[in-house]
Structure formats: structure tokens, C-alpha cells
Design a protein around this nucleic acid. Structure first.
Lengths: 337, 337
DNA sequence: TAAACTTGTGAAAACGTTTTAGAAGTTTTT
DNA sequence: AAAAACTTCTAAAACGTTTTCACAAGTTTA
């Protein structure tokens, strides 16, 4: 690989001159600059990112921290689409991305250590256990961090608007005439808390008060538990006319139960999901759901992180809330008087 | 960040000594080694990968090249699961992964240039257009490369066994009594070629010869075109009793058509997919499909790449063929005399 | 007792950059 | 004509490692 020195020799100038030309410093004469650029091209010069990083302490590498035990977020459509748009935006800004884990060579390392080892300029954190001490340590280090779907005080985060999302969903099913609206929710996270609170609040505002057994605790992305909850709901003396599922995927578990029970969707029972994943919009009847704007989530996270890295002094901590949008499918039946 | 020099000063030894201790060279006395290790830990020493890379020309970074226009392979379940297992295995071996694209800073670069810039030790290539000149350039460079689902002569590749996969599928539906087996295939790639050839060959061996209009050209992952093909098939004077779809996802397009036509699966018509993606195993009726072993594909690709990097002299080019497995779901009806 | 190893250590060079301070030459100002 | 200011360039240091070679001291062999 051709280096600055090779170009310098070839052109009969110093390494410093070549460096300056290639970095666009204005103090080198036009003729020299021309000559240097030409030889650089001729020699197929590529800067060496390691050398540059060593000198400047900037790698133009962003760390991405996803869960890394068992199955990673990669296999989860919501997160993989967020990651995808994060990647696109990061690359547009000249940054590459590297996954953070806890291996350095054969040795075990904390996330923070791994970030330091790789000298990442910043880290995006999503889809992890935000109470993990290693995550907390990383967040409170001097490395620029942006989190998705969780906010650390005095830091930058991007979160999907679960409050308005749930509100839209409940208001919509209400407007379709539903008064007995059940909610199967996911595991105990801040996301779930937002949705659950919003569900209760919106119901109250609309003057309906769901009985306790209309609210069932399940897990995200788990068809089995959701199936069980669905069964419980339809066996109630006064079953709901509409069920809101933890997410689109787990709805599949419920759908099977409904079919087995001889209940048609939406004629006999209405349902809605959450996420807006692709395949359920292809499947008929098209699932009514709240599509999270994964595209914006990833893109904004990347923008914020780059901003924080490049203008640390003038970047304020804060949370960007990204609204989702209601996808009106065919699974909510209009009912009522 | 503490450096070797800090440790050296603290211990009153030279930088060289510290380096040797930390790299486990045997020539340093036990007592010194102990002391150095203790101070290293105390100071929270982390090696600097950039400095190390600069000196050794090894980054312990693997490039991953996925399609990077519009939507990346990240959002495609088959590839994202392959990537996931690749990542896990790479990390187990002490390598991190970095996505290859064609940006270097704000400048446009070829894939090869990007790899050189980042000094990756090797590259895994999957889910790209293998006829892209930039991909070919990269493959034929001096950078170690492993490809997935495509073989370059005299290089290392890992491919899913589409021949035996298709054979298993056809033999299975035959054994269930089907003689009129249609095949909707994906776009023109080497994967499709294998499956198509295997379909014809297996049919012939079983003594059935599908008429031309039983073979329909569609696209992978596209429900619309698949829907059209499905419609065509069921409108034939003598429609098939079983349809093999390009992949599980595109089957959804067909499923909708079948339902609208009043055909029940599997009572009125049998179907099978390809891939074994998660959600279709949750949905009832469970789709009969050929599950590709994405776990092995990614893992073996990582192993081979690491081997090629670490033992270039004794690593032979060649192709590893990874068999899939038939997932017997509920969408193939037993028929016949 | 000298010669030949061993063992533990360090000095120094090298990897490819960026950057600072300043030299040399040229132009402008006084 | 001298001083000041600008332009163009370079030498050298630095970033944090790894590695080669040499040296000293101790140990064995002849």
C-alpha cells in the first residue's frame, strides 16, 4: 500500500506537504497540490485509518451495542430495521459501524473497555437491558452515547412515542365502536410502562374502564404466552370485543387461538398489533397496528450521535420523541348501535 | 487512558518489558511479570487497537459486505440470521465486525478501497450481486474472502445445499401422494438455478414430468408477483395439487390468493415454502418448508475466514455445503389411492 | 579460569499519520 | 532600502504499540 512517504518521494516534497494537500489545507501552492494529487491517484493511495486514528484520536467508527447474549437484536425485525437506518445515516456522514461486545481477543472485557479498545467515537445503545451495570458504566463514561427507547438523565435519547401510539390505537378502536378493549402487554420495561399507562389514561378519558382481567401480562415476541392470555380473555364471562396485542409477532399466537376457538377476525373479534412489521401487512386480513417509525428512529439516533461527537459543546442533552402511525388494516370491525 | 509507558514508569521498567509481559512472552521473570500485570490492572490499562494495528498490520476486524443500496440484507430474515451467527462465531475468535460500504468520509470509494482503509483482516460477502465489478475486484484482491451462497473459483465459500434441499422437498411431497407439483421460483441467481435443476431432476427420477406452465418465474421475498403466479396456477385446466413457493415470505402472497379463491390449505391444495423463517412456524397451519441452516452457514463462514487469515498457507480453497432440513408442517395433505 | 551459553532487560526503530514551529523566499509596506 | 507581512514549504515530534538487537549478569561447560 502506498503511503504518504511514497507520494512524497515520488514528488520530491515532504510528507507534511503531501498530508496537507490531501487534507485540503490551503497553504500549498496550486502546482504542487496538482502534482501531489495526481501521484496519489496514480499510486492508488488510501489513507491508513489506524495511523490516522492513532494520531487524531478519531476513528470515524461508531459502536453499536445490541443485546449480545443468545440471540441478538439482529434477528428482531424492529431492531434490525432501526439498525439498518442507523447504518445508512452513519455511513452518509462518513462513519462506519462496529458492534460492541465483551470480547477483546480471547479475554473478557466490559462494554466500556471494548469501546476504548476500538476507540469508537461514540456509541448507539438499543435493545439491551438498561439496568445492566456495564451498560450504565458505558453511559456514564466520557464516550458520547445515544440510547434508543430508554432515556438516561442528562443524556441524548431517541424514543418511539408509545404514549401517543397507544392513545391513537385506543381512540381508533373506540371510534369503531369498541368499548370492551383488552390489552395484552409485554414484559416490564419502560416501553411497556408507557403503553400501559397510556392505555389506562386513554380509556379513562373516553369514559371506559377496563376490568382488571382485561389487562394481561405476556411477553414481547412470544407467541406461546400470548396464546395463553388470548385464551383467558375469550373465556371470560364477558369477553372483550377487541384485543390489543403486545406486538405484531406475538399476535400470531393469539390468531391461532382465535381460529381454533372458531372466532373469525374481525367478524367475531377485533384485534390490533404494534410495530407494523412487514409480513403482517402482507398477510390477509391485514393487521391493524401501530407502525413504529423505525426509519426515523435509526436516522435521528445517528444524526444526534454525530452531532454530539462533532459539536460536543453545543449539543444539548434531550430526548427526541418519534411518533408512529396507525396502519388501518382489516382486523378492526365497526360495531355498535 | 493508561498506556504502556504509564505502566513502565510506574513499575520502573521499560516499555518493551511491559509489552512483552502483556503479550505473554516467556522471557520476562516471574516477579517482574507479576508487578507489571498488577499495575496494568490497577491503571485500567487497555491496549490501543489502532496503535497495534499500525504496527502489526492486523486489526482483528472482519469486514462484512451485504447489499448496501436501498434496503440492506439486515432486514431480510435469512441474511440477518446468517449474519448473527457469523458475528457470534467471529467474536468468539476475538474478531469484531465492521460493515463495508462505499464511503470513506465524504468521498466515494470502492469496496476494496474501503477494506484497505479499514485494514480489515478478511471479508465475508453475502447477499450482494456477485457480478458487480467491485465485488469481483475485492474477491480477487489479496484480502482473504469467504463468500456465502456463491462460489468463486479457487476461493472459499459456504453454500446452502439447494440441490438436496429441493430434492428432499419434492421427494417428500411425492411420498405424500402428490404427482402434480408446481414450482414458483425466484429471480435468476445461482441459488435459483440449483433449485430449479434439482426440481426437474428429482421429478424425472420419480417419473413425473411437470408441464411447462407448472413452473413459474417470480421473485424472492415478493408477495405480489407470487400472488400472480399462484393465480395462474390455480386457473390452469389441470391445476397442481401442490405448489412449492420461492420462499416462506413470498408464500404469504400465494396464501392470500388461495384463501380468496376459497381453497383451503391443505385440504384443497398443498403448499410448501423454503427458508424456515420463524413466524411461519408460529402461524397455523404450520408451513411445511425447507429450513436452511443459517446457524451453520454463518458459523462456518466465520470459522473458514478466521482459518484463512491465521493459516493462509495451509488453508485450501473450497466449498462447504450446508444441508438444510425438512420442516414437516401441516400444509402438505396426504392424497391418492 | 576462560569460553560459551542463558536469562532478563532495555534502547531504539518502525508502522503512517497529523501538526507545530519555523525557515526560506517573495511580496508589500514604510 | 529596510522592515514587515505573507506564501510555501519542511523538519521533527508525537500518537501507542511491537520487535529486533544488544548488553549485562549469571550459569554452565571445557
Amino acid at each position: 500500500m502506498a503511503s504518504l512517504k511514497d507520494i512524497a518521494n515520488e514528488c520530491g516534497v515532504s510528507v507534511a506537504t503531501v498530508s496537507k494537500v490531501l487534507n485540503g489545507h490551503k497553504e500549498i501552492s496550486g502546482t504542487t497540490a496538482q502534482r501531489v494529487m495526481a501521484t496519489a491517484k496514480e499510486l492508488g493511495y488510501m489513507p491508513n485509518s489506524a495511523a490516522r486514528a492513532l494520531k487524531t484520536n478519531r476513528t470515524y467508527n461508531l459502536g453499536v451495542l445490541f443485546v449480545d447474549d443468545t440471540k441478538s437484536g439482529l434477528t428482531h425485525e424492529y431492531f434490525s430495521t432501526v439498525l439498518d437506518s442507523f447504518k445508512v445515516e452513519a455511513e452518509k456522514n462518513g462513519y462506519d459501524i462496529t458492534f460492541i461486545n465483551h470480547n477483546i481477543g480471547s479475554r473478557n472485557a466490559t462494554y466500556l473497555e471494548h469501546c476504548r479498545y476500538r476507540c469508537v467515537d461514540g456509541v448507539m445503545i438499543a435493545c439491551v437491558n438498561f439496568f445492566d451495570p456495564q451498560v450504565i458504566e458505558l453511559v456514564h463514561s466520557d464516550i458520547p452515547v445515544v440510547t434508543i427507547d430508554y432515556t438516561f438523565d442528562n443524556h441524548i435519547s431517541v424514543i418511539s412515542d408509545n404514549v401517543s401510539g397507544m392513545q391513537d390505537l385506543v381512540q381508533y378502536v373506540y371510534s369503531m365502536g369498541h368499548r370492551r378493549v383488552a390489552f395484552i402487554h409485554g414484559e416490564n420495561t419502560s416501553v411497556t410502562a408507557s403503553r400501559l399507562t397510556s392505555y389506562y389514561k386513554t380509556c379513562m378519558e373516553l369514559g371506559i374502564s377496563p376490568p382488571d382481567d382485561y389487562v394481561q401480562a405476556a411477553l414481547y415476541h412470544d407467541t406461546r404466552v400470548t396464546a395463553r392470555c388470548t385464551k383467558a380473555l375469550i373465556s371470560l364471562p364477558e369477553p372483550p370485543t377487541c384485543i390489543l396485542f403486545p406486538d405484531d409477532y406475538s399476535y400470531i399466537g393469539g390468531a391461532n387461538v382465535l381460529r381454533e376457538a372458531g372466532l373469525r377476525v374481525p367478524e367475531d373479534i377485533s384485534v390490533a398489533g404494534y410495530d407494523g412489521i412487514h409480513i403482517l401487512q402482507a398477510l390477509s386480513p391485514r393487521l391493524t397496528t401501530l407502525k413504529q417509525d423505525t426509519d426515523s428512529l435509526g436516522r435521528i439516533a445517528a444524526q444526534k450521535l454525530v452531532e454530539l461527537i462533532e459539536y460536543p459543546k453545543i449539543t444539548l442533552p434531550g430526548t427526541t420523541i418519534v411518533k408512529g402511525s396507525l396502519l388501518e388494516g382489516d382486523t378492526i370491525m365497526r360495531i355498535g348501535e
